[in-house]
Structures are given as C-alpha cells and as structure tokens.
Amino acid sequence: METSAECGAGLGLKPQHFDEARKCDAPGLWFEVHPENYMVAGGPRIAWLDAVRERHALSLHGVSMSLAADRAPDTTHLRRLRALADRVQPALVSEHLAWSAWGGHYHPDLLPFPRNGAALSRIAANIACAQDVLGRRIAIENPSHYLRVEGHEWSEQAFLAELVQRTGCGLLLDVNNVYVSARNMGFDAIEWLDAFPGEAVTEIHLAGHSVDVNSQPPLLIDSHDAPIADPVWALYRHVIDRIGPRPTLIERDEHIPAFPVLLAERARAQAILASAEVAA
C-alpha cells in the first residue's frame, strides 16, 4: 500500500475516466473520491474502485461528517466509512471544517460557524470521535468564506492549530479556498498562508473558481468547474517553497474535461513538487 509520503499530485476520480485512470502509469499519481459514493457492499462502483486501487493510491475526502454540528458524527455513517477504508486502505482521509446538520435537520451544504471556545470544544470532540471509530487520523480542510460571521474569538489558523494540538488530526490546505476567501473578505492571501500551521499539512487541494456576478460586490465561488487560475498557482508555489512538497490534488467537479486535459494540469503541480524536492 502506498503511503501519503509516496503520493505526488493526484486527481479526483470520475466515472467517465475509470479506464484511463486505471491504466495511467504517471509516477506519484493518486486518486481521490468522495466516500459517500462508494459506501456499498458491492456493485460496479466499488468494483471499479477496487480495480483502480490495484495500481494507484486512494484518498477518501468526506463531505457529510458535519464535524462542526451540535452532536457527534453519525456512528452508522462512520462505521460504513471505516468498512470502506479498511477495504481500500486509503493513503489519506479528510473532511471539511463545516456543518450540514443541526438539531436533527440536514442542510445540503457545508456551512460556516463562529470560531469560539464552544465551537472549538465541540469540533475537537467530534474529530476525536471520528478518528476513534475510523481507527485512523483524518485531515481537516479550511473552508471558503463568502460572508462575515460574527462572534469569532480565534483566527482561522490558530483555531486549526488548536484542533491539531487537541486531537492529533492533520490539515488539508485548500489553496483555492484561501484565494477565494481573501478576495471575498479582503485579506492578504500570502500573509494568511504564512501564518498557517504548515507542519500539520498532510494534503493540499487546488481547484478553479467562478464569479457570481449577481452578488454586489461580485463574489468568487469555489465552484471546481474551471482550470486553476494563475494567482492560485502562484500561491501554491509559495506554499510549497515554504513547507516543502505535500500530496496535492487537482479538483474538478463540473465541466469536467477529457482525462488528458486533467493530466496536463496535474503535471504542472507535479513539476512544482519535483522542483521543491530537488531544492531540498
């Protein structure tokens, strides 16, 4: 089984690319999936995933633990996720720092929260619960921000660092989320990244974004439906120069191009990782 240290730049695994993904022999290539699409006992999807896993490392990137919610993650969900993880032995497991369920009501989105002491205690307990049931460390992703939330007592970087300290979790640094948030909220992305706890980063995400022109002022949206923008590439290189190579995922969830197009974008990230390894 490949470890995260052996992972270079990876791609999100899409059903239309299964055959090409399975056959591709690019060094360091790995694939990420949303585990919610594969938490089944059998069928074609899990068979395809098994086939890809024979050649490439996998990452499970969850979207429904609701770690910032008012109660512990659903135990049935975690047990099903563990069964999948035990089957495919992923190099990486990650989840979002957000909530989608509250008071027994589910919302089909990843929603923000005030970074206060109560939230810190609640989320740390939820992460610890998830890691205990899964029997493995997970990485927590920094979110995109679109509006100002009142009641913050911690900076985002300090909040994440404290979660790492309390739970032993890792961090998934989404560079596009930082760029989108910086543009929407008016802060300096470089300064934000320089304050991020880089030693805890186990994975990096890169993605494209879009502009919501119906908002005033217009908002950048973490839409995963376009090539990675040049300013995001520049931020990525800055991060890698600072913290060293980390497994890096190219995300594309809408307007998905042909597999060779994604491979070319992935090759750009791989080249940055390779140059950092030489410099080290």
Rank of each mutant, 00 (worst) to 15 (best):
A83G: 10
D86F: 10
R183K: 06
D25K: 15
E2M: 14
H96N: 11
L134Q: 13
L163P: 03
I221C: 03
F159T: 07
R137G: 08
R137Q: 15
N214P: 03
L206P: 05
Y179R: 05
G186L: 09
A47W: 12
V261I: 04
E251K: 11
E150I: 03
A128V: 10
G104T: 06
R82P: 00
H17N: 05
S4D: 06
P197L: 04
R242I: 01
N126E: 07
I140N: 13
S94C: 07
R246F: 13
D253L: 02
I123V: 02
H152Q: 07
L235T: 00
L160A: 09
E32K: 05
P247S: 14
S66Y: 03
S215T: 15
P245R: 07
E20P: 12
P257R: 08
Q216H: 10
P247C: 12
I228S: 03
V239Q: 09
A280E: 13
D50P: 06
E191F: 05
L78H: 00
I256V: 11
Y236W: 01
D212P: 14
N177M: 01
A161F: 10
P217W: 07
A229N: 14
S144Q: 04
V93W: 15
D188K: 01
A119V: 05
A269K: 09
Y38W: 15
V278N: 14
L173F: 10
Y106H: 12
L78P: 08
G151V: 00
A269W: 08
H255C: 15
P231N: 09
S64P: 05
G28V: 05
I140E: 08
A124M: 13
M1W: 12
R80I: 07
A161M: 10
D74S: 08
P73T: 06
E265Q: 08
K23H: 12
L67W: 07
L147S: 05
G198S: 12
A101P: 06
A264R: 11
I127M: 02
H145G: 00
G117P: 09
A267Y: 01
R122Q: 13
A68C: 13
C7Y: 06
E254R: 15
P108A: 01
P114E: 08
P15Q: 14
A189T: 00
A119H: 01
V149A: 03
F18M: 12
I140D: 03
A57K: 02
G103H: 01
L134M: 11
W102R: 01
G186M: 09
A47D: 14
Q89T: 08
C24P: 13
R45P: 06
F187W: 03
E254V: 02
K14F: 09
T167I: 11
A125I: 06
E32A: 08
A51K: 11
Q216P: 08
D109H: 09
V239E: 06
D241M: 03
A85N: 01
P247M: 12
Y236Q: 03
V88I: 01
I138Y: 15
A124L: 12
N142D: 02
I190S: 02
R53S: 12
Q165Y: 09
Q157I: 07
S64L: 04
Y179S: 00
M65E: 05
A69Y: 13
N142W: 00
L263E: 12
G198Y: 11
G103M: 07
F196A: 04
D174A: 02
